[in-house]
Amino acid sequence: MTDASTYQRPGEAEFGDYIALLKPRVMSLVVFTAFVGLIVAPVNLHPLVSFCAILFIAIGGGASGALNMWYDADIDAVMRRTRSRPVPSGRVSEGEALGLGLALSGLSVMMLGLAANWFAAGFLAFTIFFYAVIYTIWLKRSTPQNIVIGGAAGAFPPMIGWAAATGGIAIESLLMFALIFFWTPPHFWALALFMKEDYREAGVPMLNVTHGRDVTRRHIFGYTLVLAPFAIWLGLTSVGGPIYLAVAVVLNALFIWRGWQVMRRTDEQSYADGHKAEKAFFKLSLYYLFAHFAALLIQHWVSM
């Protein structure tokens, strides 16, 4: 795949490099969805407890990112969009990334247990393990279904937030999980469609590399159809309401339409216009998840 010669000359690490190890952009999604899961739960926690719970969930998400960067340093060194990350660029050693990831994992789980409850803490520990071991070490390099199964790791945070508030699981938290779980594959496959060579060169068996672009396009559209009922079902539960349902119906209609446009494309059309439809779908997917969870939050505040 690559060798040590691929890595850049080591440089002196700065504070920002250690922050980058935690994947702050990914962590922001973890924090937001966990926060929504905690806030809409039918239990009012003390504000300090809520703050601490979200903080430690965020730290756990950052720990997962550091462990992922530790193990994926060889892949990151090959791909254009990741080669400047702290480990492949040589600014942070693999040992430092591993040590930071393990330390933050232990800290986040222990402190979440003390601040909220041990069920939520165990859930967080399982999520870190799932992302670092099941997805990063096993699935990512072994199957084109890597992002399908591995996507569960990114879908757990609202369930952890709900568990931090209630100490358990409910249909509402399961549907929040389903919303992220079924959103993840089409989101990443759309990105992969216009970054195919990066994944091929890195040896990552993304669906478009192993089964071709046409199969990937059909899968993207298929997942938009599967996703929509779960998104709307969530609006019919105790955390839903007219505001959320309106957002869900509009966004899922747009998502299905954009997915249909992607599925109908040929390689010739995609290359001719610079993957216009694929990029439009990917851009919409970035807003899709945030808008659904923001609508849940607004619905909760309006209904109070």
Rank of each mutant, 00 (worst) to 15 (best):
S50E: 13
A53Y: 03
I54P: 07
I54D: 08
L55C: 10
F56E: 05
F56H: 06
I57G: 04
I57V: 14
I57N: 03
A58R: 06
A58C: 11
I59P: 01
G61A: 04
G61E: 05
G61Y: 01
G62T: 09
G62P: 07
A63S: 13
S64L: 06
G65I: 12
G65M: 04
A66Q: 10
A66V: 08
L67G: 09
L67M: 09
N68H: 10
N68R: 03
M69Q: 15
W70H: 14
W70S: 07
Y71Q: 03
Y71A: 06
Y71D: 08
Y71N: 06
D72V: 08
D72Y: 04
A73P: 07
A73K: 15
D74W: 12
I75V: 15
I75G: 10
D76W: 11
A77C: 09
M79Y: 05
R80T: 06
R81P: 07
R81A: 11
R81F: 14
R81M: 13
R83S: 08
S84M: 14
R85K: 12
R85H: 10
V87K: 09
V87D: 02
V87Q: 13
P88Y: 04
P88Q: 06
R91F: 14
R91K: 15
V92G: 05
S93I: 10
S93L: 10
S93A: 12
S93E: 07
E94P: 11
G95V: 00
E96F: 08
E96C: 09
A97I: 03
L98K: 14
L98A: 07
G99D: 02
L100G: 02
G101W: 07
G101A: 09
L102M: 13
L102K: 12
A103I: 04
L104N: 12
S105E: 00
G106A: 11
G106M: 11
G106T: 10
G106D: 09
L107T: 02
S108K: 00
S108R: 08
M110D: 04
M110Y: 15
M110L: 15
M111C: 08
M111A: 10
L112V: 00
L112D: 03
L112C: 06
L114I: 14
A115M: 11
A116C: 09
N117T: 05
W118H: 03
F119W: 13
F119S: 01
A120S: 15
A121V: 00
A121Y: 00
G122V: 01
F123R: 02
F123D: 01
F123N: 00
A125K: 05
A125M: 15
T127M: 03
T127E: 02
T127S: 14
I128Q: 05
F129P: 08
F129A: 11
F130C: 07
F130E: 03
F130R: 03
F130M: 07
Y131M: 01
A132V: 05
A132W: 01
V133S: 01
V133C: 03
V133Q: 02
V133I: 15
I134P: 02
Y135R: 12
T136D: 13
T136G: 01
W138M: 09
W138K: 00
L139E: 12
R141N: 13
R141V: 10
R141E: 13
S142D: 10
S142E: 09
S142Q: 11
T143K: 06
P144S: 09
P144K: 13
P144V: 07
P144A: 06
Q145E: 14
Q145N: 14
N146M: 05
I147E: 09
I147Q: 13
I147K: 12
V148E: 00
